[in-house]
Amino acid sequence: MIKIDNLHKKFGKNEVLKGVDLNIPEKGIFAVLGPNGSGKTTLIKSILGMVVPDKGKIFIKGKETQQNGAYRSDIDYLPQIANFPNNLGVKELIKMIKDLRGVNADYDELIKVFKLEPFLNKKLNNLSGGTKQKVNIVLTFMFDSQIVILDEPTTGLDPVALIHLKNLIKKEKEKGKTILVTSHIMSFVEEISDEIVFILEGKIYFKGNLQELREKTGEADFEHAIANLLMKDHA
């Protein structure tokens, strides 16, 4: 589904991606993990075309990504920080994104689930961080694209919303979608992901499922396994 070939990216002198090769097959939930500054977000942004790589190629559905961004209609993206045009209302924003994409969107159900009805006509700059994140989630999941990319989706969510989010992700998986997630909440990752991609210093350090991870690190506990990966590196 997503194929990355020898991806390089420098920001100034800081070499963030040093030749990433990655092949993400169809269907399943893939967690991209790594310490702060390891290049997770840069990788995701490269896939989305928000970062222009110095070197390397990215293929989505077998086609190389293009400048004009048309391929992004196959991707639903949840950005890390959700900030929206301040003077728009929630409903207007939803309609606007729908209008921009020019495809059908199914948001009534989502609005109900996240209890956003009271906020529909409020301006976005009057909403709390958590509510904004809920809006963010609605904006992502209201479309029915093959690929879903979630950058820190749990930020600011209350436990109830978190459960709804997990259900949502599972549902999307059942539809046969390819889902890419980054998160710092290890329990969340452990619970939902089928496969883990661990990035360290701009390179893929580990790729495999939970079982393989446990085998490699010799740790039964997921959190410890990840920590182990890091420690080893620093050792």
């Binding site: 400048q67 048309a70 209609s73 959700a82 929206f84 045009p85 994409r101």
Partner: peptide, 17 residues
Amino acid sequence: YDSKEFTELLLAQPVKR
């Protein structure tokens, strides 16, 4: 600067930069 995040939101949409 104010619409930077919004811009990022748009950048993920199938719209030309």
